[in-house]
């Protein structure tokens, strides 16, 4: 047992950090100027898009590696849809045994599929229901991945402009009854494959949220040491110290549970991996809103303005909490999974 990142994993975290402004935003004004193609090329250039590509059946990088990247991009509030359009898209295609060119195109940055989720955002949409759905990660692409029963399908766009709460990751609503042109990709997924994929999805969303929360907390810690009131830094008020200490603890635990879930992706049985991922997501879902609200509170008035970064963190966290199910959703599933694991 040695639950720490390897030197290579530390290096990976540094790589993501060093991409900096090319893939992330520091303030809301950066959003308008953000260059999606450049960011995607930067991620492709460093090989990050293809981490889950299989070589001889083995993923090039472990669940922990992808988790580290997701956390790093969350911390930088990256608008690049790494999670949906690269890591999860490739994982899905690999699990379905899709043709190599499809997968390689994503890894090279040439294709960027979105994911079509059900309207409750709890998982991939099953298009047989004709219930429409919500597209994530696909605002800059013309196709998305979804399910028809347990068959992975490629749904042809275009899908219309994105919107929604998160300014860094736009969603597109597809109305119920919308005629979708879809073609099957690969073989039907086994129940085990569905579980593995869901575990990765939950883990990466949790990692993204953990990264964003932690960066938001780090930012306000810095600010609290600079901002003067009553002749002293506001950081010297115990009321704020306690708020920050609690938020920090919540973040630490989010990283812990997410790390275990990421390790379990490759190392544990699917049922245990799924339970681990739901546990991480349940924790993140329970704490995230409170953490980002605490951050906004400590910034005081400035944290209530559109021009300030803190609502950008908050909005990202709010969407992350909902993606693949919020806390209550996870708790319902966890109750049953626990008994199954025994």
């Amino acid at each position: 047992m040695l639950a720490v990142p390897t030197p290579e994993q530390e290096l990976l975290a540094d790589t993501v950090r060093s991409l900096g402004a090319a893939v992330g935003v520091r303030n809301p004004q950066d959003l308008d100027a953000f260059q999606h193609e450049k960011a995607w090329a930067a991620l492709a250039g460093t090989g990050l898009l293809g981490l889950r590509v299989r070589d001889d059946g083995q993923p090039e990088a472990s669940g922990v590696d992808v988790m580290i990247v997701a956390q790093g991009l969350g911390a930088q509030l990256s608008p690049a849809p790494f999670l949906a359009s690269a890591a999860l898209a490739i994982e899905l295609l690999e699990l379905a045994g899709a043709d190599r060119p499809l997968i390689d195109a994503i890894a090279a940055g040439d294709a960027q599929p979105g994911l079509l989720l059900d309207r409750g955002l709890t998982g991939l949409a099953d298009i047989t229901a004709g219930d429409g759905g919500v597209l994530i990660g696909g605002v800059h692409s013309d196709h998305a991945l979804a399910l028809r029963g347990n068959q992975v399908v490629r749904v042809q766009g275009p899908f219309g402009p994105g919107g929604g709460a998160d300014l860094t990751s736009r969603t597109t609503r597809i109305a119920p009854g919308t005629e979708l042109s879809a073609t099957g990709v690969g073989e039907p997924l086994t129940p085990e494959a569905v579980r593995r994929w869901t575990a990765l999805a939950l883990t990466l969303v949790s990692a993204d949220c953990a990264g964003a929360m932690r960066a938001a907390v780090d930012g306000v810690i810095e600010y609290s040491k600079q901002r003067i009131a009553y002749g002293v830094p506001i950081a010297s008020f115990q009321a704020l110290q306690h708020l920050i200490a609690d938020a920090f603890t919540a973040c630490e635990a989010a990283v812990t549970t997410t790390s275990y879930a990421a390790w379990a992706i490759d190392a544990a049985e699917p049922v245990e991996a799924l339970l681990a991922a739901r546990t991480a997501k349940a924790w993140v879902g329970a704490v995230a809103r409170n953490v980002v609200e605490t951050v906004m509170q400590i910034y005081g008035g400035i944290g209530q303005t559109w021009e300030h970064i803190s609502h950008v963190y908050a909005r990202r966290a709010l969407l992350d909490v909902a993606l693949f199910g919020d806390e209550n959703y996870q708790l319902d599933q966890i109750f049953d999974l626990r008994r199954e694991v025994g």
Binding site: R119, G120, V134, R173, A322, D326
Partner: peptide, 12 residues
Amino acid sequence: LGPLALTGADDG
């Protein structure tokens, strides 16, 4: 509103 709110179904 949950997901409806987050995906802008209510115009934000």
